[in-house]
């Protein structure tokens, strides 16, 4: 089962290394990982997705909590979080196909980030499933390059970590 762990850490050199170390020494695979600074510049948020059983995730949470640089850890429940990934995709296009692609963008809520005479670069921020759908719709137009971030998430409602 995929689970999302949100971790607030000291924004310092070496912290990410300690965290990934903790996963690798137990041979736990990280599905996705995203890091970014929070509103407090001394704190970063790391969002990690692991595909493991509950007991593994519980042990990971405890081990994360043991790290001195880790301030807070929480496993987010799927239906109680707002979670997004960002996709940037470059597709080839002709004058003919351009409008079709623009239509798709409109349906999916994607933005056109860049155009050239024979390519379009599109960006979409959404859930992983929706990004997959968008990619599958674009495939007939020949995808040239894809870049995706890991997932970032916060709890729904007024609660915070």
């Amino acid at each position: 089962m995929k689970q999302t762990i949100s971790v607030l850490v000291e924004n310092q050199a070496g912290v990410l290394n300690r965290i990934t170390n903790l996963f690798s020494r137990r041979a736990f695979n990280i599905e996705s990982l995203a890091v970014g600074v929070t509103d407090d510049p001394s704190i970063s948020r790391i969002t990690i997705i692991v595909d493991s059983g509950n007991s593994v995730v519980e042990q990971v949470e405890k081990q994360l909590n043991k790290l001195v640089d880790v301030i807070k850890v929480r496993t987010l429940e799927d239906d109680k979080m707002i979670a997004r990934e960002l996709l940037i995709v470059k597709v080839s296009c002709t004058v003919k196909t351009r409008t079709d692609i623009m239509n798709l963008c409109q349906i999916m809520g994607a933005k056109i980030a860049d155009v050239s005479p024979n390519t379009m670069t599109l960006e979409l921020s959404d859930t992983g499933d929706r990004l997959e759908l968008f990619l599958s719709l674009l495939r007939p137009f020949s995808i040239l390059e894809v870049a995706r971030t890991g997932l970032i998430a916060v709890q729904k409602g007024s609660g915070k970590m």
Binding site: S55, E58, Q59, K62, Q63, N65, K66
Partner: peptide, 8 residues
Amino acid sequence: VDPAEIGK
């Protein structure tokens, strides 16, 4: 004293 030991 170490919560991570419990259940490990």
